[in-house]
């Protein structure tokens, strides 16, 4: 199928939307506190686990009821609260004290790596210790089994979470835009990013701005993870170790200094990861008649895009400030 089906395009868009949300979150905390947060992908997994627990405890019994689909409204919100709290805890216990001590960029990155290791291992522990009949089962099972495909006009049958992901990303993008341009707190966030010194002189509580940015970053990661849960073949905390590269790729393609750039970059990287391997192997099959499986290399594509943008096309997506990224 060199011409992709609509369903395939939609599922690729869902993957892109998830990554857009995640790249946006990682960019937000980079812009406010200059921290490259390696624990971001683990937060998404925590969002996924939250959703699975919710599914298992409260929604499994509703499977035949239309109420079942309220899952897609409830679970991202609940996951957002959980991961937002985790991000705030991370900032308050780890990042803020180190920034106050004058720890450098690399020191802070190490700190987020360390926090990620702690968080990821605690999550593993939690999943393994929870009685096997609940979460243990979810670890193995294909989570899609929990979902019933719904019939959608023009598209045919598809899994509803794939529709919710792009909608959610769009809503979060618009919401964030309104927050940053229409509310005083949002504008003060932009002011603190641009010139924290002046913001302090003026009397903006820059500290609170940073705290809120970490909460928002964690919350959006949880939302993305919540819907991504259905896309994963099973929940494994270790999956975060690779996924973080894609998230950074989206963020860097978007310029690392622009929220909107990150949304676009994340969407580009995420959907490319889904489309390009399939497209290449389809073309290859058409030409040679042999089948090659490129999907397992899909994360390579985001890596290549990241390297390409960093080294070869430093201007990145059009019109983004790239000053101060490259040396010399």
């Amino acid at each position: 199928m060199v011409l992709p089906s609509l369903e395939f395009l939609l599922s690729s868009a869902a993957a892109g939307a998830a990554l857009a949300l995640l790249s946006m979150g990682i960019t937000l905390t980079y812009m406010t506190t200059r921290v490259s947060n390696f624990a971001h992908a683990t937060m998404a997994i925590i969002g996924a686990v939250t959703t699975l627990l919710l599914l298992d405890r409260f929604f499994a019994g509703l499977r035949d009821s239309p109420l079942y689909y309220t899952l897609f409204l409830v679970s991202p919100l609940l996951a957002a609260v959980v991961t937002g709290a985790v991000a705030v805890i991370m900032y308050v216990t780890t990042i803020r004290p180190l920034i106050k001590k004058g720890t450098g960029l690399i020191g802070l990155m190490i700190a987020t790596l360390a926090f990620d290791i702690i968080l990821n291992n605690l999550l593993t522990l939690f999943l393994q210790l929870t009685p096997a009949q609940t979460v243990g089962r979810l670890l193995e099972a294909n989570v899609k089994g929990y979902l019933v495909p719904v019939s959608i006009p023009l598209v045919g049958y598809m899994y509803p979470h794939r529709l919710f992901l792009p909608i959610l990303a769009l809503l979060v993008g618009i919401g964030l835009h309104l927050f940053l341009t229409r509310t005083q707190f949002g504008i003060s966030m932009r002011a603190s990013i641009e010139n924290p010194q002046l913001a302090r002189i003026i009397g903006i509580n820059v500290e609170r701005v940073y705290l809120v940015s970490w909460f928002l970053s964690g919350a959006t990661a949880g939302m993305a993870g919540s819907l991504l849960a259905f896309e994963m073949p099973g929940i494994s905390p270790a999956a975060a170790y690779l996924y973080i590269v894609s998230i950074f790729a989206g963020s860097i393609v978007g310029g690392l200094n622009s929220i909107y750039g990150a949304l676009a970059g994340g969407f580009l990287v995420g959907s490319m990861e889904a489309i390009v391997p399939v497209f290449i192997s389809d073309v290859y099959q058409l030409v040679t008649g042999e089948y090659i499986d490129l999907l397992r290399y899909q994360r390579m594509f985001s890596f290549l895009l990241l390297i390409l943008v960093l080294l070869v096309a430093p201007e990145g997506l059009a019109g983004i400030k790239w000053r101060g990224i490259r040396r010399g």
Binding site: Q184, I187, R190, A191, E194, N195, Q197, L198, A199, I202
Partner: peptide, 15 residues
């Protein structure tokens, strides 16, 4: 560095 260059004039004054 006495203004916020990315904010509009109005936003600067609001801040």
């Amino acid at each position: 560095d006495n203004i916020f260059p990315g904010l509009t004039v109005m936003e600067n004054l609001m801040m």
